[in-house]
């Protein structure tokens, strides 16, 4: 089978993804548990690590990458992210403005 050698390669890719995800969760959990950093810095680490972990999951578990084939999958994700950004930031902006003016 010509696919046989690839099996190990693909298995390794899943394991790399798993280990990366594990590290990316363990660090923020550890920071929150120990309180090693100031709250604002902790929140920054949580945000950055979560975003990286999302990319790791997409890359290693869902096999979405920047290759030339089937760009429409990637386009779809990017478009969804754009809309999510518009909707969520807009929503938070509006509601924050409202609550600020209600004080």
């Amino acid at each position: 089978m010509k696919d046989e050698p690839n099996y190990r390669q693909e298995l390794r890719s899943y394991l790399i993804g798993f280990v990366l995800a594990l590290v990316l969760t363990a660090v923020p959990f550890g920071l929150v548990a120990t309180g090693a950093l100031a709250p604002l810095q902790t929140l920054g680490v949580i945000t950055v690590f979560a975003l990286i972990q999302v990319v790791v999951h997409f890359r290693f578990f869902l096999h979405i990458d920047l290759s030339q084939q089937k760009r429409e999958d990637l386009h779809l994700i990017l478009f969804t992210v754009l809309l999510l950004l518009i909707m969520c930031t807009g929503m938070i902006w509006i509601m924050a403005s409202l609550s600020e003016r209600m004080h």
Partner: peptide
């Protein structure tokens, strides 16, 4: 008219 700021 809901009450958010003029900037929004």
């Amino acid at each position: 008219t809901m009450g958010q700021s003029a900037n929004v």
